[in-house]
Amino acid sequence: MKKILFLLISISFPAQATECQTNANFIIHDIYSDPDYKQFVCANNDCPIDYFANSITIYQESLGSDVIGCFATPIRKARNFYTGFYVIKEGKIRPQFIFFGTWLTPKKDTHASPTPLVGIEYIEAGELERHQFSWNGRDYLETQTKEK
């Protein structure tokens, strides 16, 4: 009986949406208005926003100090692709930037809070650039770029 009751409770109360999922409509509309991001997802077609939304993955990372990072990436990847990056702080979402590169992620092994971000951009055969973005108290800004 306890198993059945637990099953009924878990069906009745689905898992709580993340803050980034709650703000997905804002994120989708924002990156849909970026012509380069839209062309990457839609190719040369003028795709409707529903198609575009189904072609994007949004996930979140805790960046510390009550800062949540929302990352919006296309499902279709290439050597370099676009990542829309948004911050949620004090319940408010703020667009930060759209990064074009191989990946964008929180920097590992750092004690800074909020956590800096690192992105890698493929330039050409064997050439990579490493980009670092740091929190200035309001926004993430690029603080370092170097060849890797």
Rank of each mutant, 00 (worst) to 15 (best):
Y37D: 04
S65M: 05
V41D: 03
C70N: 02
G84E: 05
A53S: 13
I27L: 00
P35K: 09
E19T: 10
F40P: 09
P116C: 02
T110Y: 01
T102L: 06
I123W: 02
W135P: 03
I93E: 02
T83Q: 05
F99Y: 06
S33N: 15
S12W: 09
K148H: 13
H131S: 08
D109Y: 10
G137M: 07
Y122S: 12
C20W: 04
L8H: 05
E90L: 03
F6K: 14
I56V: 15
N44P: 00
K146F: 15
P95G: 04
F85Q: 01
T145F: 06
A78P: 02
E61V: 14
E121W: 00
Y37C: 04
F100N: 09
P95R: 10
L63F: 04
P35A: 12
T110Q: 06
V87K: 06
C20F: 08
T57C: 02
L128Q: 08
E129N: 15
A43V: 11
L141D: 13
E127V: 15
D109A: 11
E129T: 03
Q39L: 12
Y59N: 10
K148D: 07
V41Q: 02
C47K: 09
G119E: 07
R79S: 14
A125Q: 11
A125K: 14
W103A: 02
Y51Q: 12
R79V: 14
T115E: 06
D66P: 00
L8A: 07
F81K: 01
I49Y: 11
T73H: 06
K77F: 10
I68F: 01
F71R: 03
R138Y: 08
I98W: 03
S113V: 07
A24Y: 07
C20M: 06
I31S: 02
A43N: 15
G91E: 05
A53K: 14
K108E: 14
E90H: 10
I75V: 14
R79P: 01
K77S: 12
A17M: 13
A24T: 12
F85C: 08
I58A: 05
D50N: 15
I88Q: 03
H29C: 06
E147K: 14
F13G: 01
L104C: 09
Q39S: 15
T18P: 07
I31G: 04
T102I: 01
E121V: 04
C47T: 10
L104A: 01
N25Y: 07
P116S: 00
E147A: 14
E127I: 15
I98K: 08
C42I: 10
K89T: 03
V87L: 01
P74W: 04
A112K: 13
W103H: 10
L63P: 03
A112G: 00
A43F: 14
N54Y: 05
F52K: 05
H29L: 09
T115Y: 01
H29N: 15
H131Q: 08
F26I: 09
I28S: 05
C70I: 08
S134T: 13
E124H: 11
Y51L: 11
E121K: 15
F133H: 06
T102D: 13
N25G: 09
C42P: 11
G84F: 07
P14N: 01
